[in-house]
Design a protein around this nucleic acid. Structure first.
Lengths: 213, 213
DNA sequence: AGCGTTGTTGATCGCCCGATCAATAATTGC
DNA sequence: GCAATTATTGATCGGGCGATCAACAACGCT
């Protein structure tokens, strides 16, 4: 026993300590959900007294909201960044559906679901949720509009279609949080659905997959 | 002041009291979500001492789970019951999409979202959630299969398609919990999407609506 | 070396939670 | 009418929560 019960945390620059606390909150949220972000748990994870967490935050609602935004914005930026390397809107939309449903981000999905319910009692969080939803919708709308300009898609009201696609993705992901079995080929069926919405030809977003995928 | 601070609740038959407690829990859940179901709050709403609520339940997790099932099963039964009066699978599917997205059941949607997050910490609830999802999926799958038999739809893997439609509905409803504005014509876009999935002709599930709807 | 600044502590307050259980009162069965 | 049963109470326990704040200690500055 050498390191754990250290008497007092070394003094650090405020920005550095704040970052450590934010990171502790982020880890807790990804492992156990947004409700796990409590004063004492974050403090313990950061190796710091509980009062220090409060010192760096106006209140816990704010830390929950900030943690939500940090996690979700990182995902959006990461995925949106990958889109730039793809040649056509059709490719980009197919990639989006494929990536967001591949099950590799279930922890982030859980954060979204937590945020939807917590947002009813945490106004700061609710604001962040709407903001991040707008960001995702913007990415999708951009792809849909580019597809129309390129003659690949045909639909009116691109904003609504983008919202719709986002809602579908969220719903399917939330579903897989609870019940991952029994659903084959999520991607293929979703591709069909989106083809119907954006007016793309059947099969253009994704061919029937070979068993191995 | 006549009724409120009554000294002692009149003694009732166990079944009757249990029903009253269940009803109190149901009202609380619909008004303020599943997390509002606490020993003391349910007791207060039922006009009873806190100990009595515990007396009728093994623990609070069980009451939360039972309340979830009561609320959600009622909705499924109600909507499924209306399907019988509709002539064709196409009509039934159109009605389902229309009804489940009409925004008149946002309180039930909130219960679903609560249950998805609470289910991670309440195993009894998680079991009920999976059970009720299966029920909804069964209803949808029945409609899709009838549609295939009737030659109105054309798709393989009806189970997956049913799951997919359910996921979309849940996602769009959850979305409208947070952000109700900015999305026009949810029903029309969803109809397009589902048409793409089940292989129905474009417009067969819903014509472009007139502005008044 | 001395002093002010400020990062840091941990005890403390008030609140709500679920669960428990001895005491109490209404009802039933005899 | 009396005893056994059981519905009901409300205080109590242990625990977690967010917030607060006086005290402490490390650092920069002169």
């Amino acid at each position: 026993m050498s390191s754990s019960p250290q008497k007092r945390a070394v003094r650090k620059a405020p920005a550095e300590r704040a970052a450590e606390i934010a990171e502790a909150a982020r880890e807790l949220a990804l492992e156990r959900g947004l409700p796990a972000i409590t004063l004492r748990r974050v403090a313990a994870r950061a190796g710091v007294a509980s009062g220090l967490v409060a010192h760096y935050q106006p209140n816990m609602d704010a830390l929950v909201a900030a943690t939500f935004t940090a996690i979700v914005a990182a995902e959006t930026d990461e995925v949106a960044g990958m889109l730039d390397r793809l040649p056509s809107p059709l490719d980009r939309l197919a990639f989006l559906l494929d990536t967001l449903l591949d099950g590799s981000r279930l922890d982030v999905t859980a954060i979204w679901v937590d945020a939807w319910t917590l947002g009813r009692r945490n106004e700061a969080l609710a604001v962040c949720v709407r903001e991040r939803m707008d960001a995702w919708q913007g990415v999708l709308q951009g792809v849909v509009e580019a597809g129309i300009a390129a003659g690949e898609f045909e639909t009116s009201d691109t904003a609504s279609v983008a919202w719709q696609i986002l809602g579908m993705i969220d719903g399917l992901n939330a579903q897989s949080l609870v019940r991952w079995d029994g659903v084959n080929d999520r991607g293929t069926h979703l591709a069909r659905a989106v083809e119907g919405m954006v007016g793309a030809a059947r099969g253009s977003l994704r061919q029937q997959r070979s068993p191995e995928g």
